[in-house]
């Protein structure tokens, strides 16, 4: 099985001599077909490749698609390596880090900007006063509005496939953060949905979304951030 992997080794000797650009290169790697078992995921293959070359760097944790550590670009599309079946992929399998964020090493990117935008979106519910004797009541219908919003794993597949986020990662919140914003705005328990919508009324945070919908295409959990963003815009418009 053939792989073509974009490497970035900033500490390699060549990089020290001629600058960081030369630390980036493409490397072909081969995995013995005998090692490839049915049902194997891309992550399993990456672990075997790392046995060939221990410097090959990528993140991973839960290995079952719920922690969001291992987003990467696989044959041109953002995916999670742990739930991407090898059998689905045409060869050579081309691997790159997710686009638009600073690369730290090989497939590892700096997630600071991504998490900063998430915090900026104020994804924290404000349910008012706490009553230790009784939960806030919520009808099954109101609860159902959160389905498709709360399941996000913050892998960044969506935001890093969004051209608006590539251009304005410091100003446009990006689809993942906006999905989280909508998740609290629409929660029947939240006491400040209006303020939340007002806080997103500038030209960038929400309105840099151009409806490209690359976010929805790339979500490995099948969520629809594009729809959440449209809902936010609609709610903002109807409330003002």
């Amino acid at each position: 099985m053939l792989f073509n992997i974009q490497r970035y080794q900033p500490e390699a000797a060549s990089a020290q001599q001629v600058g960081a650009q030369n630390a980036t290169y493409w490397q072909e790697m081969t995995l013995d077909d005998a090692l490839v078992k049915p049902g194997m995921m891309l992550l399993d293959a990456l672990k075997l490749l790392r046995e060939q070359d221990p410097t090959l760097s990528f993140r991973s944790s839960c290995q079952e698609g719920v922690c969001g550590s291992d987003a990467m670009q696989v044959n041109g599309r953002n995916r999670l390596s742990c739930i991407t079946p090898l059998a689905e992929l045409s060869q050579p399998i081309e691997l790159m880090p997710v686009p638009g964020l600073p690369i730290l090493r090989d497939l590892i990117v700096d997630m600071t900007l991504f998490f900063d935008r998430y915090a900026q979106a104020n994804p924290t519910l404000n349910a008012g006063k706490f009553n230790p004797d009784q939960e806030h009541l919520q009808s099954p219908a109101d609860r159902a509005k959160l389905d498709g919003l709360y399941e996000c794993i913050l892998c960044a597949c969506c935001s890093t496939s969004c051209p608006s986020f590539w251009w304005h990662p410091d100003q446009f919140l990006g689809p993942a953060a906006l999905l989280a914003a909508e998740r609290v705005v629409i929660d029947s328990r939240d006491i400040q949905p209006k303020q939340r919508l007002e806080a997103l009324s500038d030209p960038y945070q929400l309105h840099r979304c151009r409806g490209i919908q690359q976010c929805t295409t790339s979500c490995p959990k099948g969520l629809d951030p594009s729809r959440a963003i449209r809902q936010l815009k609609h709610q903002q418009w109807t409330q003002s």
């Binding site: 706490f130 230790p132 009541l137 009808s139 109101d142 609860r143």
Partner: peptide
């Protein structure tokens, strides 16, 4: 109940609990 208050989206019964 505190977790619920913090925002955990618990599944609900018909009476909202």
């Amino acid at each position: 109940r505190e977790l619920e208050h913090f925002g955990v989206p618990f599944s609900r019964l018909d009476d909202g609990k």
